[in-house]
């Protein structure tokens, strides 16, 4: 190990994941990510994007290889330390995964549970400071009129913003997004992506975003990682992503792909 001036925030070394004995879901994936980058992972359905994302915060255990976050090798962490690690990594989902029957503020405060003792979490005792922070984030995301509304009364875009607020209230170093705009209409999609981008810029949070929409990935990312059949097939800046490379990733000719109209397609 040579000391470097800036260590990568996240480093994956030869990560392999097998769900069954025959085909690997992830085959020998290695890359490293610097602080503050906005990274998209693209690839066809079932290519291992979601698995890759979940291996980072150990929602899924890797079969072999190493995931190193902020200088800590995650696979060696014990339960308590794993919780501490997860508080530093926020996560946003395609289906928002909020507790529908609870209000916006309650859902947002769930992001603080990782910092609390079991008892305080069970009783739902949040400090004044935590509540103020939650309200501040809700205001920033433009949800101040919905603070005490139940989440099942919100629109898709609003729900996703609650999801983002829940991740932000964790004070994360990095946020993982699993297809954050796949269930949203084009308009909300743009609002959400703009939000993620500006959060990344202003708060210096690293983002790793799984995307189905190649044009969105091109527009917003600093760097694009392409995955196909569990293999890393592309790693570079958006301008390196030519139509040829896209067809490599998706395994079909470029003109068969709905690259431009994909946003509309996703909304339908």
């Amino acid at each position: 190990m040579t000391p470097e001036t800036s260590n990568p925030l996240l480093e994956l070394k030869n990560v392999i994941k097998y769900y069954n004995r025959t085909t690997p879901a992830l085959a020998d994936i290695s890359f490293s990510i610097m602080d503050g980058q906005f990274i998209s992972i693209i690839g066809p359905s079932g290519s291992g994007k979601s698995t890759l994302l979940r291996c980072i915060n150990r929602m899924i255990e890797v079969s072999s290889g190493e995931v190193c976050f902020d200088g800590v090798i995650t696979s060696q962490l014990k339960k308590r330390d794993l919780r501490k690690l997860r508080t530093k990594i926020g996560m946003i989902f395609q289906h928002y995964n909020l507790v529908d029957r609870l209000t916006v503020i309650e859902n947002v405060l769930h992001g603080r549970l990782g910092y609390k003792s079991t008892m305080a979490g069970v009783l739902g005792r949040y400090s004044q400071e935590e509540k103020m922070q939650a309200h501040r984030i809700i205001n920033i995301l433009g949800l101040h009129d919905q603070v005490y509304q139940r989440c099942d009364q919100l629109s898709g875009g609003q729900k996703q913003r609650v999801g983002i607020a829940r991740a932000l209230v964790q004070n994360p170093r990095m946020i993982l997004c699993d297809e954050p705009i796949s269930s949203l209409d084009p308009n909300s999609s743009k609002i959400i992506m703009d939000l993620l981008r500006s959060i990344s810029r202003e708060m210096g949070i690293t983002f790793i975003v799984n995307l189905h929409q190649v044009n969105v990935a091109l527009k917003y990312s600093d760097r694009i990682i392409g995955v196909n059949k569990g293999k890393l097939v592309l790693d570079g800046s958006p301008d390196q992503l030519t139509t040829e490379r896209i067809s490599d990733i998706y395994g079909s000719t470029a003109k068969d792909l709905m690259t431009d109209s994909e946003e509309r397609y996703a909304a339908g």
Partner: peptide, 17 residues
């Protein structure tokens, strides 16, 4: 999954969600 990804433990998930 979402709550445990944010670091919440089993008891907290049970009583909060």
């Amino acid at each position: 999954e979402a709550l445990s990804a944010s670091g919440a433990n089993w008891w907290q998930i049970v009583f909060q969600a």
